[in-house]
Simulated assay, not measured.
Amino acid sequence: MNESVSRLDLLRFLERVQVGDLARTRQWIADEEQRQAEIAARHAPPPPPDWIVEQGIGVGRRIVAVHQGWCRMSGKRTSPITRDEALRLLAADSGMACQQCRPDTELGVL
């Protein structure tokens, strides 16, 4: 090793390199966040339907619950329905109303 360069000088050089690397990495992160924000702004998710039905598992997939579209308690097996369909289903069986979002109350079935 060259004796004219001290260990302290080498460590300071290393620090400058690492600071530069950190600045470059932070810029890459900022660029990626900006890119993702632009993509999200272009592809806003559609609004949820007003009413959904949750279907059971198996053959026939019978309807097990009626939810308001925003309800987080609904499962993965859901389908959108109209207000009239929701009213008809709840009039036939009030036990289908979700106990969390209370579509029967919102529809005035109670």
Rank of each mutant, 00 (worst) to 15 (best):
A97K: 04
R24C: 08
N2P: 12
E32C: 01
I81T: 09
A41N: 09
R12L: 14
W70Q: 15
T78A: 00
G75W: 03
M96P: 00
R88D: 11
V66P: 05
R24Y: 13
V53N: 04
Q55C: 14
V109G: 06
E3I: 14
S6Q: 03
A65L: 09
W28Q: 12
G58P: 08
A86Y: 05
G60N: 10
G60E: 10
W51S: 05
H67S: 11
Q36H: 05
T105N: 14
E33Q: 08
V66A: 12
Q55A: 11
E33R: 15
P45D: 15
M96W: 06
R72I: 12
L14G: 04
V66R: 04
E32I: 09
E15C: 01
W51H: 15
A44Q: 14
E38I: 02
D93G: 01
R102V: 01
P47R: 07
G60F: 01
T105E: 15
H43T: 05
S74Q: 12
Q55I: 07
D93M: 03
A97M: 01
G56P: 12
V19R: 11
P103S: 03
G95R: 14
G60T: 04
M96H: 12
R83I: 04
A92E: 10
D21W: 11
L10M: 12
D31C: 02
E106D: 08
P47M: 07
E15M: 08
I57H: 12
P45M: 01
L14T: 07
H67E: 10
P49H: 04
P47V: 09
L89D: 00
R61C: 08
